[in-house]
Design a protein around this nucleic acid. Structure first.
Lengths: 207, 207
DNA sequence: TTTTAGTTTAACAAAATAGTTAAATAAATT
DNA sequence: AATTTATTTAACTATTTTGTTAAACTAAAA
């Protein structure tokens, strides 16, 4: 009650700054001083709002993990047919990653650092990651039997879809060099990529 | 002269330990104490052999970057036809990454941290990353004109190939959960993946 | 105007980490 | 056996970073 009297724009500014610094540098390389500077305040005020670096990081990390996996469960769980789902996943993933290019490298680096935390997070959210694949597999095998698509291992297909959507954002600095382009040029390539990858996958699945 | 008298097994042990710790934790989270423990020695001896953390890291990082890009240039520069090159790239990449699963997340995390260093490294090695794509593009466009493959943007194709080979190793902890498997099971899936991905790509390129 | 919450300043404490050094010890070389 | 080299121990310094605190100040709310 006491806290919400005035506007909470500073708290927002801090969280935004923490997000920026953590997602760009990762937990270990991120400095509280960086976050304070980014938020336009000082270190003392950081600790006034959030007790510790770990506390702040947990907040940010949970948000980012949710965002990283957002949508995927809904799409796979929906009533769409396989082609529609593939289109939706690619569209959804690349759209999110254009808006948050640092998301995958951040989440995956920290998950590699501490795989345990992932599991706890998934359990807490009541999500069973393996259910995703099971649901997807049923539909794929069904379509194979109906000869809508050629025979393929469903988990390999899912890996292919996610790989092509996500990897370019992880390799962004390398790709910018190879493609001889800048941030805006890279974004253009990624927008084109939605259609290119979708076509590529559907073509690869033809009987 | 003085140094090479005795065997240099300690130096090797240190470099191996440094490689393990740096590639698993990244520069910022790696501790000299961790490296010493891993090498079975103490911190003092680390500094006796290698002056500083930065010095050690530079040695390791340069090796790992070379390994990460190894082969790709030779394969693309070779006289193989496109299908053979695709087969060779997938085979080569996945084989390397099965042996060094931490390689991509390490290199890409550090490159994202400091893209400048990449450029310097490439220049020093006399490698022009964009030449890779140019060479590849010529061959792809040629095959499109000859109707050996369907029309496709060469850079998008190259991204697809690299994505599907590399990404699963970056997302390994997540995939282990989704696939409900352990390290050896994951390796089995990755071995199968060589053929799966190659077929997937060739199928996607059919006219 | 008085009070209260938000913020800054600046100094400090505590912990972690990198790096150094001298002395002792172990082990290999001559 | 004598010498050199490798290694450990342990204490220490320097630096970086996180976290705390008290006091002063600012600006909004009552």
């Amino acid at each position: 009650m006491v806290k919400e009297k005035r506007d909470n724009q500073t708290e927002k500014a801090i969280l935004e700054a923490a997000d920026k610094v953590f997602t760009r540098k990762g937990f270990a390389a991120a400095r509280m001083e960086d976050i304070a500077k980014e938020a336009g305040i000082n270190r003392a005020l950081l600790h006034y709002y959030f007790r510790s670096k770990e506390k702040m990081f947990d907040l940010i990390f949970d948000q980012r993990v949710r965002e990283f996996f957002s949508g995927l469960g809904e799409i796979i769980g929906s009533e769409k047919n396989l082609e529609e789902k593939i289109r939706a996943i690619i569209e959804h993933e690349i759209t999110i990653l254009i808006a948050h290019p640092y998301l995958p490298i951040f989440v995956l680096q920290e998950v590699n650092q501490n795989p345990q935390r992932m599991l706890e997070h998934a359990q807490k959210a009541g999500a069973h990651p393996s259910m995703l694949l099971k649901k997807f597999s049923v539909q794929v095998k069904d379509d194979i039997k109906k000869q809508i698509i050629r025979p393929i291992d469903p988990s390999q297909l899912l890996m292919n879809i996610m790989s092509m959507a996500i990897y370019p954002f992880i390799a962004k600095p390398i790709l910018k060099t190879i493609l001889e382009t800048d941030d805006t040029g890279f974004e253009v390539v990624m927008k084109r990529r939605k259609k290119e990858v979708t076509e590529f996958i559907l073509q690869a699945l033809k009987v």
